[in-house]
Design a binder for these strands. Structure first.
Length: 490
RNA sequence: GCCCCGUUCGUCUAGAGGCCUAGGACGCUCGCCUCUCACGUGAGCAACAGGGGUUCGAAUCCCCUACGGGGCGCCA
């Protein structure tokens, strides 16, 4: 009878509707790095908070002591910082609040909304197996639910279970999933405190979210069923149920679930691949959220536009091609000095980064900045940017790649040889003067500009692709340019 | 097995009964621009999972099927 009534009591006025500023949180478990799905969840929470002038809190779900590591926590915080998702206050350790969680469990016991269960795990396992083989729902019905505590066997440490309603239904009103109804008969009495006295996840989450004043819970759909169980805990404590938004998951490129060995890289991996945080933010938010046909959306615009109603219900796949395209856009629109800073930031974590760092420190930094306008136009990642800049720092004699070698045949070398005197005669070593000189040479020899420019490019950069050759010459300077040309002349 | 959720171009999506001969973006193909590549730009290929309803009218509402995903822990 009590159970029935409980389901009919309208949910307490939702905290999110009380007019207070929203409070959201991102609550990762420290089992590894900040993976891409978690990053998007954090992004959604952050955007929601920024949009509404609310608060974005961080809580580390470290109640499982066997799966906890300080390194993992550090990696997650690092990832969030790099992504630009700043949180309010200090991160909360869930484990540190275990006393409070136990106190709440005790109160539920006192209220008759929880009970001690003495069934050993083996018994529970057997019951589940039986249910499975008989094709029934695998829920465990503890014999201790209605048994007098006096019957407790001596020497057995009990777990504490929620006395959840047996009839009726639990309704989760979700901003993304809509109204989802769970028959209570399908939800068993979940354990809220383990027999060793440690609170379990579902209890801890509810207590913490309540104590932290969380008004909106935005997380992955894999928590949808938990939302129902957690709702029952809120109701057992007569606490206001927060608003929910369960966002669909991100799958790998092949549609399979994103797992750690299957594309679910930590955000630091994307950093090392040369992606910009702004680009990753833009890409990630579009995975599941849309604002009409807008694609390239600045973070400011995102904050202004973001809302839970823009989130779709179906899962999406991670697509590097689109991320990379977006990244190229952000690279082109980022300032030259900022790009050089970004490059310096990732040098320590990439191959040959140390050598590059030495070159930059030895005066190469200014050269890099000067060449950046031509470089960033043709790079989609910082790695490509670094690769494209190699001609600035290469030492003579230049290593020629295959295409450059093919370009520098006998005729081409003769062309360069013929050009050398003209270039020596150039007054001021600027791209404009150089272009005039080369064009004059081409016209005099009745050659198409490309016939001269390509050999030049090959001799100057060792490659068939580079920024405009005249800029290249200006970038590396008169002495170095002439030396490289003489190396390949005739 | 049981409970939930989903399904629009290859991918991300717009679309909330007529505005849809279904739009945008990435990718791809073919051009233009051009000293290369890239940028930019023009054109093209390409989708409402299938079947039943409801309605004057359905990508949009309902039902069934198929497929996909999530959950079913003294994990989080």
């Amino acid at each position: 009878m009590i159970d029935r009534d409980m389901t009919e009591i309208p949910a307490p006025a939702s905290a999110g509707q009380s007019g207070r500023k929203p409070v959201v949180r991102f609550a990762p478990s420290p089992t590894g790095y900040l993976h891409i799905g978690g990053a998007r969840t954090a992004l959604f929470n952050w955007l929601f908070a920024k949009h509404s002038g609310g608060t974005f809190l961080l809580r580390i779900e470290d109640t499982d002591r066997e799966r906890n590591s300080e390194a993992a926590v550090a990696a997650i915080l690092d990832g969030l910082k790099w992504l630009g998702l700043d949180w309010d206050g200090e991160p909360v350790s869930q484990y540190a609040r275990a006393e409070r969680h136990r106190a709440v469990a005790d109160e539920m016991l006192a209220r008759g909304r929880a009970y001690r269960c003495y069934s050993p795990p083996s018994e529970i396992e057997a019951a589940r197996e039986a249910a499975k083989s008989e094709g029934r729902a695998q829920i465990f019905e503890s014999p201790w639910r209605d048994r007098a505590q006096g019957e407790a066997p001596a020497g057995v440490k009990p777990a504490i279970r929620l006395k959840s309603p047996r009839t009726g239904e639990t309704v989760v009103t979700d901003h993304v999933q809509g109204t989802v109804t769970f028959p209570n008969k399908d939800l068993d009495d979940l354990i809220i405190v383990r027999s060793d006295g440690n609170p379990t996840y579902n209890l801890a989450v509810v207590v913490d979210d309540h104590d932290m004043g969380v008004t909106h819970i935005i997380r992955g759909v894999d928590h949808l069923t938990n939302a129902a169980r957690q709702t029952q805990i809120y109701q057992a404590m007569d606490w206001a149920v927060p608003e929910f938004a369960h966002v669909p998951l991100i799958h790998g490129p092949d549609g399979a679930k994103l797992s750690k060995r299957h594309g679910a890289l930590g955000v630091e991996a994307y950093r090392a691949m040369g992606y910009l945080p702004a680009a990753l933010r833009n890409y990630l938010v579009r995975l599941g959220w849309a604002h009409g046909n807008d694609e390239v959306i600045s973070t400011e615009q995102l904050v202004a536009w973001f809302g839970l109603d823009g989130i779709g219900k179906s899962p999406s796949r991670f697509d590097y091609a689109k991320l990379t395209d977006l990244n190229g856009h952000y690279i082109r629109t980022t300032s030259d000095t900022e790009l050089v800073r970004r490059i310096e930031d990732i040098l320590p974590e990439i191959e040959h980064g140390a050598a590059m760092a030495d070159k930059l420190a030895a005066g190469g930094r200014d050269k890099l900045i000067a060449a950046m306008p031509g470089l960033k136009e043709r790079a989609k990642t910082l790695l490509e940017l670094i690769d494209g800049a190699q001609y600035l720092f290469a030492s003579r004699p230049l290593q020629l790649d295959d295409k450059a070698k093919a370009l520098l045949d006998a005729g081409a070398r003769a062309t360069i040889a013929g050009l050398v005197p003209r270039l020596e005669a150039v007054g001021t070593w600027t791209a404009a003067e150089l272009e005039a000189a080369v064009r004059g040479y081409a016209e005099a020899g009745n050659l198409k500009l490309g016939k001269v420019a390509q050999p030049l490019r090959a001799a100057l950069t060792g490659r068939a692709v580079s920024p405009p050759v005249f800029d290249v010459m200006a970038d590396i300077g008169r002495v170095e340019a002439m030396a490289r040309l003489r190396d390949q002349a005739a």
